[in-house]
Amino acid sequence: MSRYSMNEFVKQTQQQDKGEGLFELETPRMLEINLNGQIWAKAGAMISYRGNIKYEREGIFEHGLGKLFKKAFTGEGTSLMKATGNGKLYVADQGKKISILHLQGESIFVNGNDLLAFEPSIEWDIKLMRKIAGMMSGGLFNVRLEGNGMIAITSHYEPLTLLVTPNHPVYTDPNATVAWSGSLTPEFVTDISFKTFIGRGSGESIQMKFSGEGFVVVQPYEEVYFSDQQ
């Protein structure tokens, strides 16, 4: 049948220029970066490129001693790579769905494992959730991003954004929490009855409580973190 021909396959799946700027969703799970300068991306996320692009792993003192110490302490797995040059760079992360955000002076916290790429104009810092470290496998950390520029985050399947208001706090499973607005500071609560009800391991009794004014992004998937992740 002609609809299964090789030409038809190429036609249906070939790359297309959409003219959307620096970050462009080539597919819901693949990000095209129209590079003309520099970008930061999750190490190992590059799947293809064309043009003259140079890659460097994040230098040990690239972002200052403070962040180096925090990275060593968290044992986190989101090492960064710096891509410099001109061309098209394609990045993805285990087939996770990609969302593009254009920060315009705002700030957002992103689970460290869900940060895919961001512009150098974005200021960032690692925040370890100390109260939960040790309570979950490998602990949990996030990255605070702020400023003006593009960032790309990932989620398993479609993300859902829940609004937080002073009268309506939101509780989430840490393993299913992708991001939250910079105005919020989560606190960690344990619920023994909840743990007993669902009959799972001790980590399931830990919940994140968001109070105030803002939003929380969750995914329909519980991501497991490992302390030996590199």
Results as ranks from 00 to 15, higher is better:
P174W: 02
I126W: 00
G112W: 00
G112I: 02
N111L: 06
F118S: 10
E158D: 13
T190L: 09
E123Y: 03
I198R: 07
A179K: 00
G199L: 08
T190D: 12
G138M: 09
S121I: 10
N148L: 04
G149Q: 08
L103F: 03
S193N: 10
A133S: 12
I126P: 04
F197I: 13
D173V: 13
E106M: 09
L145C: 03
N148K: 06
T190A: 13
A133T: 13
N111V: 06
S107D: 03
T161M: 03
L140E: 12
F188I: 15
G147A: 05
L162T: 12
R200I: 11
T190V: 15
M136F: 07
V164E: 00
N175M: 11
L140Q: 15
T161W: 00
S121T: 15
L115I: 04
D173I: 12
A176N: 02
N148R: 05
L160Y: 06
E123W: 01
E119Y: 01
D191R: 13
W124C: 08
I122K: 00
V164I: 05
L162S: 04
M135C: 15
P186D: 10
E106P: 12
Q104L: 11
I153A: 00
R144F: 00
H156K: 11
M135H: 15
V189C: 08
L103N: 04
E106I: 14
R144D: 02
E106S: 14
I126L: 11
T190Q: 12
D114F: 04
T165M: 02
K127P: 03
P166L: 08
L103W: 02
T165L: 03
G199H: 06
V189F: 06
I126H: 01
G134F: 04
I108H: 00
E204H: 09
R200E: 14
G105D: 02
S137A: 15
N113E: 13
P120K: 05
E204S: 14
A117L: 04
T161G: 01
I132A: 08
G149S: 09
M136Q: 11
F118G: 08
L184S: 03
G139P: 02
V170P: 01
T185W: 01
L116M: 05
T161L: 03
G201N: 14
V178N: 00
G147Q: 01
V178L: 01
P166M: 08
S155T: 11
G105E: 03
Y171S: 10
L116R: 03
S137V: 13
R130T: 15
P186S: 10
E187C: 09
N111A: 12
N111Y: 01
T172P: 04
D191I: 11
M150W: 00
M129C: 11
S121H: 05
A152H: 01
I198M: 13
P166K: 10
L116P: 07
S107V: 03
P169V: 08
A176Q: 01
A176S: 06
P159C: 09
T190N: 10
V164A: 00
N142E: 09
F194P: 07
L163N: 03
M136V: 15
R200D: 14
H156I: 08
G112K: 05
